[in-house]
Write a protein that binds this DNA or RNA. Structure first.
Lengths: 335, 335
DNA sequence: CTGAAAGCGCTTACAG
DNA sequence: CTGAAAGCGCTTACAG
């Protein structure tokens, strides 16, 4: 595969490569005669010229490539984030390189190195537990980075998050007002701050309320979610629960939990009310419409790209964090 | 952000850039003294050197970048394809650039151009209707390309598909053997050959069978799938179907259809049996376990990368198409 | 209005 | 064992 270069055009047109470059880049300052301009465009067309961005990148030090690191691109939430980022990035002329960290700090670091070697102009990352140092290194190198969805304690890096604690608190208060006998929080056994925020919001609402209810926390690891959730619900919820509320702190947890409910013919909301963080098409298959907390994914993507583009064009060390508001979408699963 | 270069190392070590390059690339043929070798590694370490792959690419004409074009990365099926491709690609040192075509031939072409400009070493694409010419152009330029999931008529390009028609035929025969009064095929109104293959498989089984049943085809466009499927089922299935089988030719169609069933309290498999192409976690939320056709996604990804890597390293014009076998996973939704 | 030339950060035959 | 030099395909001040 031999592609044509600016040099080929120059030769055919009988001009210098400089002239070709000026014409093709529409640098009007250097007024090239209409005649040669036309000739150059024609030749470029006929020999099927496409610019070599690699060469351009080397010169300009810009690749128009953005690195995206998520936990797992096959995860519903992240694939939607990725899709929205892709669209917003394209609008600004960027293309996305994507990698999955699998919640592994080492792999996360490898990916940042790989992307850095590919000279991405910037990175959008969902950091994993233990990746503080990796992030700090990037910041120290003045590498444009923004976090999305997640953030890490003690690392000052710009990013986009939602008001996890607040929305969790508000929705929990709503739950409390309904007077359940038992409320179960299903969450992750994790150090990830954004997930802990959700839990703290839940706890805060509970402790500041005058209502009393039997409160339980079921925490599962990041792997084998489905089995763990089902097993724990079996132990703690039983087959014939009454006047109980389930609070799932992610859509994956919710899918696992709802699967348990439907398999055991537990009625929602008659026996158990359900509220879940994040949406997913899967809810459509559940007999009752699910009440969920909706993250403004499109807005998150837009702000992330904007923030990153800003950093790329004019780097300023800043830990600027933008917090967007999630909202509750109330459906029948909450009595 | 100013990164250090090979030149910086050379200066600090008091050697030439050539020597540094040889050492860093572990080219043992040119035996460099252990002493300078060590010095160079140390310096590289301390000044935090990372190679500029862009510069290397320009010289070697290899970027180790692979372009992936899917219909929509937020679609469950494609995000899983992407994830598997990512892993296989990484094993061979490639990184993935991802783009979504939205079933739009123009956007598909734009993406190929963009990727080509980024000098990707090759592309893995799920072509869209009308993208024959775009594909032909790439082939003509001897650009390494392999298709995945889909293929196009009359274009000779290597690729991976599954035996859509065969598996559809086999599963339909199975359905026929159960003696349903009514069988409804829910598919797409499309020209995409791999989807038509599924329909042809269904038709073939029907026409070559001695059994008779009321056969219906519900075809929907590629947009607004959910609403269309529900509306059509409402008209053609009704609220109290009996001894009927539903054949969904994709997981998105199945999710839409199952949602209709669950909302209308239609019992599976007592009233309606269900079989679906492709899996999704969403099935977990349906009261009955769904019988589905499982594509060997991991194997598809592996073969695609292997085929592409082969093309990249030794280009030979070939329309080699690899067909893998899908398999039926039988569950309770089929009586 | 146009071109010669330097240079981006590497690799690699070639010479010594 | 090591280095000088050419070159990958562009861009861009500078000169004319």
């Amino acid at each position: 595969m031999k592609r044509s270069s600016i040099k080929d055009i120059a030769k055919l047109a009988g001009v210098s490569v400089a002239t070709v470059s000026y014409v093709l880049n529409r640098k009007e300052e250097q007024r090239i005669s209409e005649e040669t301009r036309k000739k150059i465009f024609e030749i470029a067309e006929t020999i099927n010229y496409t610019p070599n961005k690699i060469a351009k990148s080397l010169k300009t030090n810009k690749t128009k490539l953005l690195g995206l690191i998520v936990a797992d691109i096959s995860n519903d939430f992240y694939s939607h984030i990725a899709r929205n980022l892709e669209d917003k990035a394209l609008q600004l002329g960027y293309t996305l390189i994507i990698g999955s960290s699998d919640e592994n700090a080492e792999k996360f670091e490898k990916l940042t190195q790989l992307f850095s070697q590919q000279q991405v102009d910037g990175m959008i990352v969902a950091p994993v537990a233990g990746s503080e140092k990796t992030l700090e290194n990037l910041i120290q190198l003045k590498y444009p980075v923004v976090t999305i969805d997640r953030y890490l304690k003690g690392v000052s890096v710009p990013g986009i998050t939602i008001d996890n604690q607040e929305i969790a608190e508000r929705t929990t208060s709503l739950l409390l007002s309904k007077g359940f006998d038992k409320m179960i929080y299903i969450g992750y056994e994790t150090e990830l701050p954004h997930l802990l925020d959700r839990q703290h919001g839940f706890e805060k609402a509970i402790s500041s309320s005058s209502k009393t209810a039997d409160i339980q926390y079921l925490l599962v690891g990041l792997e084998n979610i489905a089995q763990e959730v089902r097993a724990q619900l079996e132990n703690n919820l039983g087959k014939q629960p009454e006047n109980t509320a389930l609070y799932f702190s992610s859509n994956k947890l919710a899918v696992a939990g709802l699967s348990y409910l439907v398999k055991n013919d537990i009625k929602v909301p008659e026996q158990v009310s359900v509220i879940a963080f994040d949406e997913t098409d899967a809810y459509d298959l559940f007999p009752t419409e699910i009440t969920y907390i909706q993250q403004p994914i499109e807005e998150m993507a837009e702000e992330a790209i904007k923030l990153l583009d800003g950093q790329i064009n004019d780097y300023t060390a800043t830990g600027k964090r933008i917090t967007l508001s999630a909202k509750l979408v109330a459906k029948a699963s909450l009595k």
